[in-house]
Amino acid sequence: MDYGFLIPAFQSIIIASTPLVFAAMGELISERAGVLNLGVEGMMIMGAVVGFAVVIAGGGGVLGFAAAAVAGALMAGLFGLLTLVLYANAVATGLALTLFGLGLSALLGSQFVGLSADAFPKLHIPVLSDIPVLGPVLFQHDPMIYVSLLTAVGLAWFFRSSRAGLIVRAVGDDHDAAHAIGYNVVAIRFAAACAGGALAGIGGAYLSIVQTPLFVENMTAGRGWIALALVVFASWKVGRVLLGAYLFGGITIIQLHVQGFGISIPSQILSMLPYIATVVVLTVISAKGIQARSGAPRALGQTFKVTH
C-alpha cells in the first residue's frame, strides 16, 4: 500500500479541526467568565458571511477575518446586552441568537449564490517547510492555523498565570465575591462574551474563506454545537479542548479515508464515530473523581444582579 496519502490526510485533519478550535476557544473564554452562550452557531455563521463578503469585495483575507471577528463580537455583544444588562434568560437568548444568526446570514448571503473566492494563500516558511514529512505536516499551512494554536497557548497561559485571567475566573466562579472586592462583574463578563464571539466569528470565517471559499446558507452545519459540547466534555481546560477538536476532526477525516479504501463498515456508523469517540475520550480523561465537577465555572449561567 502506498502511504503517500498520509501527509495530505494529516493536513486535511488540521484544516477540518481549526474552525472548531477557534469556536471552542471562544466559548471557553465566555464560559470561564460565567457566561453560557449557546449562540455559537449563530455567531460562527455571521462570521462566515461577513468574512466572505469582505473577501469578495476585494478586502483580502486578513480584513475578512477582522470583519468576521467584529461580526461575531457584535452578536455576542447583543447577547451580553440582553442577558447581562436586561437579565434575559441565557439559555433562551443563546438559542435565539443561533436562529437569528442563521436567518440573518441567509438574508445577507443570498447575493453570494454561486460565487467562489480565491484560495487563501498558504504560508511557506523557508527551510522548515522543505523538511521531508515534517515540513508538509507542520510548516505548510495557512497562517490562521498558527493563529489558532497561538490563541490556545495564549489562553492556557492567560487563565493559569495572568492576573487578568484569574480575575475572569473569579467572576465565573463566584460573582458575588468578585463584586464584593470591587470588580465590575458585568463589564468583565461582557468583555469575555465579546472576545468569545470574535473567536467564533473567526472560526466561521475559516470555513468560508479558507476551507471552502464560498458562502452558502447554513454552511456551518452544526459545528457551533460541536464546539459547545467540546468545552463541556473537556471540562473547561484549554489543552483538552484542543485535543477534543483535533480528535473530532481527525476521526472525521479518517472515516472518509476508510470508505475510500472500500473497507466495509456502514457509513452511518462511521459518521457517528467522531461524536462518540470525542465524547468517550474526553469524558474518560475528565472523570477523575470530583475533579470532573470542579471543572465547571461555579457561577456558569447564573444571573448576576447588583444588590447594593
Partner: peptide, 26 residues
C-alpha cells in the same frame, strides 16, 4: 471507482473533506 458516503446532502466543509480524501487516495 472510490466511493465515499458523507451522509448529508449539504455540508460544504464535509464535502470538501471527502473530496480531499479521495484525491489523496489517487
Amino acid at each position: 471507482m472510490k466511493i465515499v458516503w458523507v451522509n448529508t446532502w449539504f455540508d460544504p466543509g464535509k464535502e470538501a473533506d471527502a473530496a480531499k480524501a479521495l484525491i489523496d487516495q489517487g
